[in-house]
Structures are given as C-alpha cells and as structure tokens.
Amino acid sequence: MAGSSKVHPRTKTGSVDQRETRPDAEQVRYRGEFNSRPVPHLSLLTLAVVLALWWATTSVGTSAIGVPAPYEVMTAFGALARNGELLKHLGASLQRLFLGWVLGAVCGVGVGLAIGLSSWGRAIALPLVSALFPVPKVALLPLFILWFGIGEGAKVATIAAGVFSPMVFAAYSGASGVDRNVVRMAQTFGIPSSMIIWKVILPGTIPALLNGCRISCSIALILLTAAEMIGAQHGLGALVLASGNLMRTDQLFVGILILSILGVSVSGILSFLERILLHWR
C-alpha cells in the first residue's frame, strides 16, 4: 500500500474534489516545530552515552587525578560506605540541612504572612527583608562564626539565613496573590477574619510556598556545602574539600554524586507533595 499512501484518502470514497487537483493546490506546510511531543528512551540513552564516554576516556589511560574511572568511584563509594565514613558525612549534612531549612522556613513563612496579611507587617518588615535579600548569604558565614562559634550554630544559621528570604517572598506573594474576590465574598458573608485566613488565604498560598521550597532547598544545599568547607570534621562539603586536598578525586566524585542525589530526592519529594496537596488543579 506504499504507493497508495500518496493518494488523498478521500479517493477511497470516490469523491475526489476538483479543488485538490487544481495546479495551484498546495499542502499546508507543518510549522509546529516547537510542539511538545514525547521522545521515548532518549533520556536514558543520553545517560548511558555519557557514562560510556566517561568510561572510555578514563580507560584510555589518562591520569586518574583529573577524572577517575566509574569503577574507581564505585570502589571509593563502597569503601566509604563500609567503614561508616559516608554515613557520618551524610548524617551530619542532613542534620544541618534539616535544622537550618526548618528554622529559616518557619521564620520566613511567618514574616512573609505578616507582610502579606497586614499593612503594619508590610510597613515594618518589607524594607528590612528587601535590604537583606540581595546579600549573598555566604558573606554572613564569618559573622555567624563569630557569633555562634565554628561549630554547628554558624552552619545552621547560614542555611537558615539563605532559606529565610525566598520563603518570605513566597509566603508574601502567595498571600497577596489569593483571589481578591474570594476574600471579598467571604467578608460579605460575614465570615470572621481568622477563619478567612485559615480557610481561604493560607490554603491559597500553598502553591507559592511549594515553589518557594524548591528555590530555598537548592539555596540550602549550596550554603550547606560552602559552610561545611569551613571548619567541619564531617559533612559532604568537608568530604569534597578534604578529598580535593588529598587529590582523591574518586572520593570527591562520591561527594558530588551524593549531593546530586540529595538534590534530586528533595525535588522528587516536593513533586510528590505537589501532587497530594494540589490535586484539585
């Protein structure tokens, strides 16, 4: 049937239209090049190709200092996992990440809601938060070390400071972005303000908060690594730095890999939360 595929299908019904056979008749050209369509397996294939290239370049015999072979990274991973070092590093990092993120997020959401819900809150807090926002939070690390000592306090405080601003703006824009007419409707019905906040405004900020979580989690991961590179015994940042100093690129790659997996996992958890919390979309 290859030959007949060129013929217009309507010839089958025997109703050829004169308009189709006119010499100036022309098939409309496809111009939808940017239409989204699924390309099966290509993502997995790309990953495999990258791995293969990695393996190929390292097996030609280049020095292991620059790029370790995949199996060397796996071996280093196995060794670190067996002697318990990996768990120590990961545990220390997760603890700092969790404490810092929760502290920053709770304060940030609190301040953000105050700004979004009350004219007083906006007048008081918005200039302060706006001034704090553009400061790269790593710059605060030395200050926090002076205040809280070189231990956990400074690291947690740096992460919290980095998480704070994006969560403030997420909560603020979420709360002020709630449909004005829905709030007016609730007020017209005499629903008490506390209930409007609890049942209309707070649930309405959830999409913005989840977006804020995405941003603040990636910031937290950056600050965690940076903070752990200064005066930390354990932690993924410390592992990466120490490995670099010892030219142990195999261990260094393990550290980077774990950080990547951490980021992807956080993103996955947030996508899962979005599916559950925003199922009405």
Partner: peptide, 29 residues
C-alpha cells in the same frame, strides 16, 4: 443566617474545595 450574599462575575469559587464544600463555606462559622 446572614442578611447579605454576593455573586461575582468571575465566580470567586475556592478552587481546592468541591462544589458542596464551596457551598458549605458560608455556613461553617
């Protein structure tokens, strides 16, 4: 229950509440 009620052009429904839950909203207090 309440002397004044309002209907908006853009409906002003609460998107995360079902139809029945939207209707329930002004009763809840």
């Amino acid at each position: 229950l309440h002397p004044i009620a309002i209907v908006f052009q853009d409906f002003a429904l609460v998107p995360w509440r079902s139809v029945a839950k939207n209707v329930e909203l002004p009763l809840e207090h």
